[in-house]
């Protein structure tokens, strides 16, 4: 069973949320909005490429648009292996968090 790092998890969740509109710009915006970090496109590309190499994501290209200076988009979707890895990591997280009181201040 494969594993995904924290940031890889976040990226895959973002791709899942975005459905058929997941590509560099939207993934970055989604992550910046929901996690309030500042990210560069380079970081996003690096992670997307790595996840694709691991077989968690697959990509296809769209038609070029004028907004992008006539360039095509590379769109991503989550593969079954990726979905399994997300589930696996989430399960691990929940299991480890069980019984811990994380809502109130640490002692």
């Amino acid at each position: 069973m494969g594993h995904a790092g924290e940031f890889e998890m976040l990226v895959m969740l973002a791709v899942l949320r975005l459905g058929s509109e997941a590509y560099g710009v939207t993934v970055r915006e989604e992550l910046e909005q929901e996690t309030s970090r500042t990210l560069t496109l380079g970081t996003i590309y690096k992670t997307l490429g790595r996840l694709e190499a691991k077989g968690y994501l697959s990509s296809y290209t769209s038609e070029p648009t004028a907004e992008r200076g006539g360039r095509r988009k590379k769109l991503y979707e989550v593969m079954p292996a990726g979905l399994a890895a997300v589930r696996h990591s989430l399960t691990d997280l929940r299991r480890l968090a069980r019984g811990l009181d994380l809502e109130t201040e640490a002692p």
């Binding site: 560099g24 710009v25 915006e29 590309y45 907004e67 992008r68």
Partner: peptide, 20 residues
Amino acid sequence: LVPRKEREYFLGDLEESHAR
């Protein structure tokens, strides 16, 4: 800097997010 395979998509994304 960007690897040639990714270049088109990367530059496209760059321009789009700039515009946005």
